[in-house]
Structures are given as structure tokens and as C-alpha cells.
Design a protein around this nucleic acid. Structure first.
Lengths: 306, 306
DNA sequence: CTGTTAGCGCATTCAT
DNA sequence: ATGAATGCGCTAACAG
């Protein structure tokens, strides 16, 4: 009789099974609409998406893409609570103090991709060591005799993202070690992506021209290289450039870019592991942030000016 | 009493609601693991992902990412039938004759992003007019006096993808109109992405050097530009290049690339519309493929050689 | 070892 | 208008 059932085109109702078992084997990936719209040269997000999907897949889970237009705690929660998913990976564009208590109260398992709170019990995230990232990048430029350095960071609603705050801390630390005074103008924020970044570099290079750039996102890095290409500014002869993000991406740019390389596959895997531990009610083993590496390529050179 | 329920932190069980209503408001996006692993410069997939996600979102649906390692009909079906989703958008890397009957028999609504069969009743797809795409690109190069043209196409398991078959038809049509004999060597297939493409261009330019290139995917286009950059081959003075894909991507390359531009947002929106019609059992209004446009930029010039 | 049944939480129907 | 009962399709527990 079972054979008959099998040979007939019977397909068990997945919804009923999920309902009964209480497990959908779906992981919600919560992203802002900004993430989606800025996909093109956002190599960091792409790597994260790839790694999370592959890892989830290998653990028997699928990824549900969940977007929320305004990245507020309450609205994120409204979207999250309506989803069929066993847990959520939250790629917050900023610190989100309001969201966590709501999720906790509702008993919804979650994980962040970065530090989301200053309370020690809020340990459900796996991040990278961004202080170190800012430090090694700045140190390398200082070793190459650069002092007119600009650190280009994106801003969301007028605020630095937490990892940029950390990178700036590392940047300042390196400066201090070398006895170079920090000046506010060394930090340059860009509100947007490709177009705004291009314009910003235009202004920057019309006025006081720096000898070295740290650029905290990939799209802005592409904008910089395009601006330099269009205006005959040579990298690294005229300006040194260091990018932040997955190393493979920068290897495919011209010139090959020196960059602070994050092991996004590692952190993504750990995020999924952590989330699955929460879902299964297992004890949590917090992960220490992994140190990024400086990959030296062709976009950085010794400063011979002045 | 209702107020009390509201004010208390009561959250209705989404799974039970889905079970009862029979609607998950989830659309499965079925992709191969290849899609995921080749995300980086795959601007076409990125645009598609973005457009599908935004459209689904605006229709009150979310996107579930479903991957299958081997893109066979049966294994795709095995994965699909286990998913909680109201319907599926299938980004098949090749024609998939085996999958469709299985889905039909199981009564699972689906939509493809390209023509998936030659039977007239298999009309559940929204594609672009790729014959036209190949034609306008080739015609433009022929107008610029190029005859040593190479059409670079990706292959999956030794086969051209259906849209490349169409583009080649258009390419040959243009050739015929201009009285240029087609030669087999004009079609060059690359098995892989960035690295393999780079090597392939190296071989190509060591031997008989073409004056113009049509490149059917974005990663290979980037590989070509990188190869030319590294070896002092100037675009468009030494070689003309035309890419295929979303126009914004090519605008951010250097030089700005002439390209055959597809309206991916349009086709993605239509795909979701079509799928929702199927899900709701509404009569289907088939969409005619939209014609692509040739965007002329800085990577194409008149052939003055010979 | 095979066959029957209870119950998951919601929405809908029906009875009050 | 409010409240109680039913059933969706599975699975796990239980009975035969």
C-alpha cells in the first residue's frame, strides 16, 4: 500500500509538515532596501550573501530574503514577526537598539553580522576586528611616508556605521603611534554611492590633494578609480589607495588594489552556526572577531612628494 | 478583550496561518549553485535579483532563495517540491525539458526567465528578444567596418545557453545582410569565468587578433578589459568591445562600454506578474519579448586597419 | 508491526 | 454580536 502511495505522484504537503513540526528550515536574511539597491559593486554584501546561502544550504536550510524600507527597530520587527522562518540573520545598516528587545520578548532567534549593542549579554553576533583593520591600513600608509591621508567612510542617516567607527579608532591609533596629529578633515563622509562619491573625489582633488586614501566601501573605491582614470591621476604614482572588503574583488580591479581583506565566508559560517545553536536551544559559544589581513598589491607606493 | 490580546505581546503563529490559508506569500527563486558562486561581476543576475525582490516585496511576497547543485530536471524538482512557497521563478542555466512536466503534474505554479521548451503551450516565461540583441550589436560593428569579429559566449556543460543560441542567430543574420561569410571561428566559447576568460583572451590575441569583440557575459567582459589593460591594448583604438547586460554596469567600467542593454526590471516584473496570475488561477496574458537597445559609448570605433 | 487517532493554531462556520 | 466547534494534513503516540 505504501508502494502505491509512492508510485502515485503523491507529494506531502510541506506546509502541514512545517506547521506540525514547528520547523520551517528557513533562515530569514533581513536586509534594508538600501542593500538591495546598492548591490552592483557591493562585493561585501555579495560575498556575505553567497557564503550565507551556501552554508545554510549545507545545513539543510534555505534563505528567505526579507527587506524593510526603513531600517528602524519597530518596522524591522513588524516584518520579521510575520515570516515563516526558524531564525533571522540581521544585516543591520546601523545599530538597532529598539529591535533586539522586541525579538527577545517574542522569543525569536536572531543573529547580527556586527556588534549591535554595548551590553555584554548582547552577544549574538559575529563580526570582524575592525579596529585592527583601520590600524593595519593606516600603519602601512604611514610606513610608506604618507601623512596626507583621507579616510572615506559612508554614512547612514548622518551616522557612521559601527564598523567604520571602529576602523577610525584603529586609524587614529596608528596616527598616534607615528606622532601624526589627527585632523577632522582626515575623515571624509560620503552620503551616497557611485555618483556622489565621484563628485566628492572631484571636489577633494580640486582643492587640497591627499597622497593616500583609505576607502571603506567597494562602490566608492570603484568611483575613485574611475575618477582617477578620467582625470589622468595615476595610482599609485600620484595617489595610493587601500580598499576594504573581500580580496578577490579588489584583485579584479585595475590596478590591482591593496586592501584590508575580511574573511567573510568565515564570519558568515559562524553566524549561521550561532543562529542554529540558538534555534536548537544549545549553549552559545561566542566567537571572537577575526583579524583582517592587509593584502598588498599595486595601488600603494612610497610617498616621494614634498 | 480583543484590546487585551493586542496590548499583550501576542504574535499569531505565521505557520498555522499559512497552513490554514494555503498561502505562504513566498516566491521561490530557483538558481543553480553556479549562479551563487559567480555572483561577483554578474550584473545581470544582480539586477534580476534586485528587481524580483523589489517587485515581490511590493506585491506582498518575499523571496526564498533555492539552490540546487546539479541543474537537472529531477534534482531541481526534488528541491522545489519540499519548499514552502506559492510558486517558483526558475533561473535555469539551460533548457530543462525534464523539470516542467514534473511541476505540471504536481500542480506547482512556475515561471522561467527564458524560453524553456519549443512546445507552444509552454508559455510560462518572460524573456528578451535575443535574436535582436545579437543582430543590432553585429550590425553596429559591421557599420563601423569591422569584419574580424569574435562573439564570446559562455557554455554550460558543453552547450550554449538558449539566449546565446538566439544571439548567434541575430549575429549571423547581420553578417548575411552585409555579405560577410560566417566562419565557425567567429564563435568562441569560454567554459568558465574570470580566470579562464583572461587566459582565453591571451591565446586569442597571441594568434590572429580580431578587431572587434561581442561578449555575452559581464565577467568575461571585465576579464577582457583587464587583459587589454595589462597588455597595452587600447579600447577602442586597437579593439572594439560590445557587452551584453544591464546598462548601468557598463557605464561604470573604463572605458565606458558600448552595450546591448536589456530591461531586466521590466522582464522581472512581468515574470512576477505572470507567476502571481498562475498562483491565483487567473487567465494568463503572455508577454512578448522586449527588444533590447544598443547603448553606444566609448568602447567602439571605426575599423581603420588593413 | 500495521492501523487508528489526537492535536498542532488558526480561520471559518455555525449556534447562541 | 460574541462564543464554541470544526477541519486543514501531517506526525507521533498509541492501540490492536
Amino acid at each position: 500500500m505504501l508502494d502505491a502511495v509512492q508510485s502515485l505522484g503523491y507529494i506531502p504537503n510541506k506546509t502541514a509538515r512545517v506547521f506540525k513540526s514547528g520547523r520551517s528550515h528557513i533562515l530569514g536574511l533581513v536586509i534594508s532596501t538600501q542593500h538591495i539597491s546598492e548591490l552592483a559593486f557591493n562585493a561585501g554584501f555579495q560575498s556575505r550573501f553567497k557564503a550565507l546561502t551556501e552554508k545554510a544550504h549545507s545545513e539543510g536550510y534555505n534563505i528567505l530574503i526579507i527587506t524593510s524600507a526603513d531600517a528602524e527597530g519597530r518596522s524591522y520587527f513588524e516584518v520579521i514577526k510575520d515570516q515563516v522562518a526558524d531564525g533571522f540573520i540581521i544585516l543591520s545598516p546601523s545599530v538597532n537598539e529598539a529591535l533586539t528587545p522586541l525579538l527577545e520578548e517574542a522569543g525569536i532567534p536572531y543573529v547580527y553580522n556586527m556588534k549591535y549593542s554595548n551590553r555584554p549579554e548582547d552577544c549574538y553576533y559575529v563580526s570582524s576586528d575592525d579596529v585592527e583593520g583601520g590600524y593595519i591600513a593606516a600603519k602601512y600608509l604611514l610606513d610608506l611616508n604618507h601623512t596626507e591621508i583621507r579616510f572615506i567612510v559612508g554614512i547612514v542617516k548622518g551616522n557612521f556605521m559601527p564598523f567604520n567607527v571602529d576602523r577610525i579608532v584603529g586609524f587614529k591609533r596608528a596616527l598616534a603611534e607615528y606622532g601624526i596629529a589627527f585632523r577632522e578633515e582626515m575623515i571624509v563622509s560620503v552620503p551616497g554611492q557611485m555618483e556622489e562619491s565621484y563628485t566628492m573625489f572631484h571636489h577633494m582633488f580640486q582643492t587640497r590633494r591627499p597622497t593616500a586614501l583609505l576607502i571603506s566601501n567597494e562602490t566608492t573605491t570603484v568611483a575613485a578609480l574611475n575618477y582617477f582614470h578620467d582625470h589622468g591621476i595615476r595610482v599609485p604614482q600620484d595617489v595610493s589607495v587601500i580598499g576594504f572588503g573581500p580580496s578577490e574583488f579588489f584583485r579584479h580591479l585595475r590596478p590591482n588594489l591593496t586592501n584590508v581583506s575580511y574573511d567573510i565566508a568565515w564570519s558568515s559560517n559562524k553566524q549561521v552556526d550561532l543562529l542554529l545553536q540558538r534555534i536548537e536551544g544549545q549553549p552559545i559559544t561566542p566567537e571572537r572577531p577575526k583579524k583582517p589581513e592587509l593584502i598588498i598589491r599595486d595601488s600603494t607606493a612610497r610617498n616621494v612628494q614634498h
